[in-house]
């Protein structure tokens, strides 16, 4: 059933800008740019998708399929997490390419292992707050988006601050030894992202079952 939901989300329900946003990881090629913004685009796309879902009556359409209201949640959670996963995977080649010609970023942290780890952690927290909040009503997007981005902003703020603290310069490095030191951030980010997927799915389903459409 996962394949059916993915087809439904991407071929029928997805906001047209999905196909543009998914490439925005290429911003890490910009010589001086706050690369944290890439993650905010990864949060903006699912919120635009839900605005679009309201406009196209996608939520009602999906709720009337055999999977009912649980199907609505399944579709949107799958869309959000797969979109962000693909977006970050597409960012990796650009990050590697960048290190070939420039290895510093005067506007913020560089696109290294710690960057991806913190990004996944921020997305995990955002997705949980945003989607479980949205599925309390099925219509209100503003406040869940605000709380989700606020939490992500704090986490990404920590990421940008760490290299400026004494002894933590390696967090902003792309040297092989530093990348190895950063790997726990990535492991933690991946684990948080995977955990968030399942918890967000379960809590959102519980919330949405109580909503009247």
């Amino acid at each position: 059933m996962t394949r059916q939901f993915l087809r439904k989300e991407y071929l029928l329900a997805a906001h047209p800008t999905t196909w543009f946003f998914v490439w925005l990881g290429a911003l890490v090629l910009a010589p001086a740019y706050p690369y944290s913004v890439v993650f905010f685009f990864a949060m903006l796309a699912p919120s635009l998708d839900l605005v679009y879902a309201k406009q196209t009556n996608d939520i009602l359409y999906t709720a009337l399929l055999p999977t009912g209201k649980a199907g609505v949640v399944r579709g949107k959670v799958l869309y959000t997490f797969t979109f962000q996963t693909v977006m970050l995977l597409l960012t990796i080649p650009w990050a590697l390419l960048r290190t070939l010609y420039i290895q510093t970023n005067p506007a913020g942290i560089t696109a290294n292992v710690a960057y991806f780890g913190f990004g996944l952690l921020a997305l995990a927290v955002f997705d949980y707050l945003f989607l479980t909040g949205f599925f309390k009503t099925g219509i209100k997007i503003g406040w869940p988006y605000f709380w989700g981005t606020l939490a992500a902003l704090i986490l990404l703020g920590v990421m940008e601050t760490l290299p400026h603290l004494p002894g933590l310069r390696w967090v902003d490095s792309v040297q092989p030894t530093a990348l190895l030191l950063q790997s726990p951030f990535l492991v933690a980010g991946i684990m948080a992202f995977i955990t968030s997927f399942f918890v967000t799915m379960r809590v959102s389903m519980q919330n949405f079952q109580r909503v009247d459409l």
Binding site: Q4, K8, L11, L12, N57, P66
Partner: peptide, 21 residues
């Protein structure tokens, strides 16, 4: 009178819908 997916072709909606039945 509920309008779903105004920008989509009927064939696209049907292709997506029928996979659930």
């Amino acid at each position: 009178e509920t309008v779903y997916y105004p920008e989509k072709k009927l064939a696209t909606i049907t292709r997506t819908t029928r996979q659930f039945y």
